[in-house]
């Protein structure tokens, strides 16, 4: 998906990638990277109770939107905190 995110950016569509392995995305050159929950649940975390997990997901997509509206020069990793 890293390569695909780059194609979107190449076409002028800012895109953020939510992934559990930001290092891979960074080395492939994805510009807007959001550190996700885990490989089997990039936009979630089943270890959390349902309502807290939803809050986590909401923050992930909010951070994605923030990344999309941010000026970035090179691969940038954005993190989300729950507290």
């Amino acid at each position: 998906m890293s390569t695909m995110q780059k194609e979107a950016e190449r076409a002028g569509i800012p895109a953020a990638l939510i992934t559990a392995i930001p290092s891979v995305a960074k080395s492939v050159g994805v510009s807007r990277i959001i550190t996700g929950g885990g490989i089997p649940y990039p936009a979630g975390d089943p270890n959390l109770p349902a309502d807290r997990e939803f809050e986590f997901r909401k923050r992930l997509v909010e951070k994605a939107l923030e990344a999309i509206t941010a000026q970035v020069q090179e691969p940038t990793v954005f993190h989300v905190t729950l507290a």
Binding site: A20, I21, T35, I39
Partner: peptide
């Protein structure tokens, strides 16, 4: 291998 998060890896 196949650890689920970058931290675990």
């Amino acid at each position: 291998g196949h650890n689920n998060s970058h931290f675990e890896k």
